[in-house]
Design a protein around this nucleic acid. Structure first.
Lengths: 210, 210, 210, 210
DNA sequence: AATGAATGAGGCTTCATTCAT
DNA sequence: CATGAATGAAGCCTCATTCAT
């Protein structure tokens, strides 16, 4: 009976530590955040972290993995949206959550920075991106407006552009003044999303009616 | 008489140090690169760096400033291109230089990561971005194809999209396998640039002739 | 009723732990072996060790005590040997057991190293040595060849020399390449033992007949 | 001119650190002595040690090397002694120096303990021993009393016995009560040396005259 | 009796920075 | 102007020990 309890407890601790780690990593960066910072944020002792992670590197790797799952969830949610536009809106505004303003953008950019020197992280991030791109490609392919994109661009090409814009907006999001509210950041993202959507999927004539 | 000589020498030393710093920063990241790394790369002693920069922070700040100038130069060159497409091509392929593959992408992404926690760097990067955006906005406004963009998007809005894509491509560039050649990366960037240009500036009908 | 059971159980646990401790101590040294190592080797939990030993120091002390008993047993066995030479052979080859090659040598040398800074261990080891020396002195005194040693050396003096050689051989044993078999190490020990015995107890003339 | 100075300075620092290290290692053991202990004993900062040694392991290795040189010097001195007995006396009393009582014995025993788990140290110690044994073998071979040892033992065999006794006495030396003076320890060593010498090199008859 | 999660002090090592030369 | 030896704070990690279950 302790086994059925031990498993979740173990997972919970890991989750608790990772939860603290995102905060610290987003606030200070992977390598500027100390293990002590994380343990304090998590409300536990430093040593305990090492019961659940082999070392700091492993925490970073787990964070990357967590990111993979979150993107996965995001795509899932986007896939269930009633329209392509709404799906894109979900994808483009995922990081504008009230509770941890700017946290996600900084974290993701840091993740890419880390990927540039840590091959393991690079592989993971690449994998995430490929999966995500495939997902969006399918989303486009099955949507009505994806059937005849302007200039005959393929769904894959459109997905690539969409992702470039999404990652780019993440970088620009970092530069928003710290006092910017989540709502404001969200509004901005929505604006860009719609303009992008119109460009990619609406021919001139149709749009004039909109 | 030493003053007329001192000034350029001083600038040269600073340049020499910064030149070494980009290499180290791109290779290891701002905070993973040690002052010793930089001094070794520059072929000088550690102490000498402190004669030209108050501390490591100042080196990072100077690097950000250097980035500003480089973007400035880039815009200058782009502004002299014969066509908008060519201007965009210059902007989008600036980081694909033979000598230091992937160096610039990693550096810029790191710079944004740093901006997310260092307000001084954030201000500088924001300034760079604003200036660059203004430049491109003007480029678009004065170009023939910028006159009537699809969906009535303004030059500013188009510039925003362009920059989002440009920054996004930088992030994606990081994920390229290390063995990717500069030429391959350049080709990819050019492909995206052209597709983006067509989308933004070519109406469906015109394009069919292209 | 649990008491009659508890006693042996308690001793068994202690023995089990000490059994695991020798292995770990010999493999890593007293202070390099962690309590966790010992608990794993013993197949129990860390906490349990503290039920039977106050702390690591106490484990080491108990190990020293165990060593005392083992030397005691060894002398017992040696005392029952039919001849002095055979007694010496038993003493000199005790550590060449098949199952844990080199284990004992390393452990004993470590014990002496520990004795040099831990007075409690020093006292114990000294006690062991004195007792052992007394035993061997008696062995010599009662043996025929011990009656007239060359140069009129007393049984005590001879025992001292014997023990110096025995401890010294232990140190040298450590330097044997790891692949050396117990049999080889035993053969070497026997050779030295016999040469020593001849020197100490055989006059030149008698020997020429042997 | 700074180069001719830099070299000795570098060597001096290393020597200074090693000098401090022997003290700490002998007092606490290799792994119980902290880098901080060593730096304090040497009167320098912790970080400075790392300018001269890659890590603690390297300090231990250097200590082992130092030991090799000291044994080398010792043999040199012993080789110049007028008689074999005096040569042996030098070898057997080397560790009984006034200034650091018991330091050397503890250090050497620790070195052997370390050798039992650190192959690099084992190789070095083995090498030291072989060289030393060769030296003593030669000493014996060239000495008058070495010509006809009792029982026809070869110089090599005699050297082996001598070294076993020497290492063994080192171990026993550790057990001397801490208040034992260097003179007392020296006296004891001399006693053993002479008895050993008589046994190995003096026939019964000659001795009766002595 | 037994477990193993949790703690936190302490060890090794790095690195920004200073300063005598 | 230039060097690089020196410092010491701080980071990562281990481990003896405790305690709730």
């Amino acid at each position: 009976m302790s086994q059925t309890l031990a498993e979740p407890a173990l997972l919970d601790r890991r989750t608790q530590i990772l939860e603290a780690a995102v905060v610290c990593f987003a606030k200070h960066g992977f390598h500027q955040a100390s293990m002590h910072d994380i343990s304090t944020e998590a409300g536990i002792s430093v040593g305990l972290i090492y019961r659940y992670f082999q070392n700091k590197e492993a925490v970073i790797a787990a964070m990357a993995d967590r990111h993979k799952n979150e993107i996965s969830d995001l795509l899932e949610r986007a896939g269930q949206a009633p329209s392509l536009l709404e799906a894109l809106e979900i994808i483009f505004t995922a990081h504008c959550c009230e509770d941890s303003p700017k946290v996600l953008s900084a974290f993701v950019v840091d993740l890419y920075a880390e990927a540039s020197r840590n091959p393991a992280v690079a592989d993971l991030v690449r994998d995430v991106l490929d999966t995500a791109m495939d997902g969006v490609t399918k989303l486009i392919a099955r949507s009505p407006e994806g059937q005849n994109a302007p200039h005959g661009q393929t769904p894959r090409e459109l997905a690539e552009l969409i992702f470039a814009v999404a990652r780019g907006m993440l970088m620009l999001d970092i530069l928003q003044p710290p006092e910017t509210t989540a709502a404001e950041r969200r509004a901005r993202q929505l604006g860009v999303t719609r303009r992008l959507w119109r460009l990619l999927f609406k021919s001139e004539i149709e749009t004039s009616y909109a």
